[in-house]
Simulated assay, not measured.
Amino acid sequence: MSYQKPRILLNYKDLFFSLIPLVLIVVVFAGVASQCSFAAKGPTQGAIPHFDIKSALASDAKSLTFPIRNPAVPADWTPNSGSRASIAGPGGGAVSTVGYITHQGTYMQLTQTDATEEALARFVLGSRYASGTQPLGNQQWTVYAEPTEETAWIADLGAARVLIKGAGNEGAFKTLAEAVAAAQPLAR
């Protein structure tokens, strides 16, 4: 004689009690693999990855055909990422991108390219369109702002186009824009 309930009599309580051992096994494996932690006071700021922006931009300046600038950002901004890509199609070109974490903990991206402004905007921003301009010093920046998206500014610096994008406030955008406009192209 079987000691199990007939299937017709099983309910959510039985399901719940059968899942408890499985959940405990998953928690044990995750703990052993150090893939989870518990913080009673909520998440904490992790370490910002180290990125040698000076070497990366110097390398880009030597290998790419357009002028690359290394802006003098505030000392409390931490470079944390960089990449190279290319924009295919009409008006495309090579792309150099670096990222910073500002003193407020927000991310700001600097993208430099020899592509046209339209190609750069489509590559980084998708289907967004310009919503205005921002004059800053002698440089005119085209602003791409939408309520649910990160703001972006694009400027034409002659042989190169520059895009600034991120979660920073207007002060962070102005700081990075002024630093880029003031920076001289790196030696080839």
Rank of each mutant, 00 (worst) to 15 (best):
M1A: 13
S2W: 02
K5R: 11
P6W: 08
R7P: 09
I8F: 08
F17W: 15
L19H: 11
I20E: 09
P21M: 14
V23S: 09
L24R: 05
I25R: 07
A30Q: 12
C36F: 11
A40F: 05
G42K: 04
A47L: 13
A47F: 03
A47E: 15
I48T: 14
F51K: 00
D52T: 06
S55W: 04
L57K: 00
S63E: 15
L64N: 07
L64W: 02
P67Q: 10
A72K: 14
D76A: 10
W77T: 05
G82V: 12
A85I: 06
A85R: 09
I87Y: 12
V95E: 07
V95N: 02
T102P: 01
T106P: 00
Q109F: 04
E117D: 13
E117M: 13
E118W: 04
A121C: 03
R122K: 15
F123Q: 08
F123H: 15
G126I: 06
Y129D: 12
T133N: 03
Q134M: 06
G137Y: 01
N138A: 10
W141R: 01
T148C: 02
W153H: 02
N169F: 01
E170H: 04
K174C: 00
T175E: 13
L176Q: 03
L176F: 03
E178N: 09
A179P: 01
A182N: 09
A182E: 07
A183W: 00
A187K: 14
A187W: 02
R188H: 12
